[in-house]
Simulated assay, not measured.
Amino acid sequence: MNEKNPPAIRLRGLEKSYKDLRVLCGIDLDVERGGVFALLGSNGAGKTTLVRILSTLLRADAGTATVNGFDVAGRAARVRESISLTGQFAAVDEILSGRENLVLVARLRHVADPGAVADDLLARFSLTGAGARRASTYSGGMRRRLDIAMSLIGNPPVVFLDEPTTGLDPQARVEVWEAVKGLADNGTTVLLTTQYLEEAEQLADRIAILHEGRIIVDGTLEELKRLLPPAEVEYVEKQPTLEEIFFAVTGGSERGRPARRTAPSEK
C-alpha cells in the first residue's frame, strides 16, 4: 500500500463493547478510494456502531481507524471535514423548500455562492422541478435524494450512507440507488451499510459481510460467488445470488446453498 495515498478508510483491530455485549471484535478493513463499498449484515451486527466510530460520534475501545488519512480519535476535526453522514431517516427541514434546505446547509458550511451550489445539486439529483416546493410535499425517495444532496455540500471525499433506503418503497429505493451510483461516478468514496442483499448486489464494487462483530468475508461480488461450489447444470446454470452467499458464510439456513435447477420430465 502506498502510504502517500492511503485508503479512504482503514481499520485495524477495532473493538467496541456495550457493558458485557461485544459488538465489534477486532475489525480489520481497507476501503479504497472511489466507488461503493457495501458493509452487509443483519440487524444488530454492528454496522451502525462502526459508522458512528468512523464519523467520530463514538469512541472505540481498542484498535485504530483512519478516514481520508486522519486518525478518527486523534484528528477528529479533520475527519469531520472529510466526511458526510446520512442516517436511516432523511434529515430535511420539511417547512423549507428543497432549494432552501440546500442553501441553508451551504451557508452553514460557508460555501461560496450557496444559491448556485443549491441549483447544481437540484439538477444533479433530478429535483429542479420540485426545488421551490416544501420538502413536506416530497415523496420518500425525493426526501432521501435531497438528504444525500445536502450531504455533498462542500464536496466531502468520503460519504457514509447508513441504511439509506430503510422504509422506502421499491420505486423510491431505485431512485436512491441511482443517486448513489452518481456519487461513485463522480469519484466519491461511499461506505454503504445495508441489510438488503439486493442493494449491495446492485451498487457495490466491493462487499464485506459483518457477522457477530467480525468481518467474515470481503471481496467483489464475483469473488464472493466463488466461495460456493459451482452451480449444478442440467439445462440452465444458476449462479449463486448474494443472498445465498450471505446465508452460507454466516452459517444460516439451507437458503445458503445454490438451488438445483432441473427441467420438467419429458413425456
Rank of each mutant, 00 (worst) to 15 (best):
K4F: 15
P6F: 09
A8Y: 02
A8H: 05
I9Q: 09
L14A: 06
L14P: 00
E15P: 00
E15N: 11
K16C: 03
K19V: 11
V23N: 06
L24Q: 13
C25N: 04
C25M: 04
G26T: 02
I27L: 09
D28T: 10
D30C: 15
R33G: 10
G35V: 03
G35F: 08
F37S: 01
A38W: 00
L39A: 11
T48A: 04
T48M: 02
T49E: 13
T49R: 15
V51Y: 10
V51S: 03
L54Q: 04
S55Q: 07
L57C: 10
L57N: 08
L58W: 13
L58H: 05
A60H: 06
A60L: 12
A62D: 13
A65G: 08
V67L: 12
V67Q: 08
V67N: 01
G69T: 11
G69L: 12
G69I: 12
G69K: 14
V72P: 01
V72F: 09
A77F: 09
R78W: 15
R80F: 13
R80M: 15
S82N: 14
I83R: 01
S84R: 07
G87P: 00
A90L: 02
A90T: 02
I95Q: 14
L96G: 03
S97E: 08
L102S: 13
V103I: 14
V103F: 12
A106T: 10
A106C: 09
A106Y: 05
R109V: 08
H110I: 04
A112S: 14
D113S: 08
A116E: 09
V117F: 03
V117Q: 11
A118K: 02
L122P: 01
G131Y: 01
G131R: 01
S136C: 03
T137I: 04
S139N: 05
G140H: 08
G141V: 00
G141P: 00
R143V: 11
R143E: 06
R145P: 00
L146R: 11
S151E: 02
I153D: 07
G154D: 09
G154C: 05
L161D: 02
P164F: 01
T165K: 00
L168T: 07
Q171L: 07
A172D: 08
R173G: 00
V174E: 00
V176Q: 06
V176H: 03
E178A: 06
A179C: 10
A179N: 12
A184N: 06
N186I: 06
G187R: 07
G187A: 12
L191F: 15
L197T: 03
A200F: 02
Q202W: 01
Q202H: 06
Q202F: 00
L203M: 13
A204P: 05
R206L: 13
R206E: 07
R206V: 07
L210E: 05
L210A: 06
H211S: 13
H211G: 07
G213T: 14
G213W: 10
I216N: 13
V217R: 07
D218P: 05
G219Q: 01
E222H: 15
R226W: 02
E232R: 15
E232S: 04
E237M: 11
Q239G: 12
T241G: 15
L242M: 09
E244R: 15
E244Q: 14
A248V: 09
S253C: 12
P258V: 11
T262E: 11
A263R: 15
P264S: 10
K267T: 13
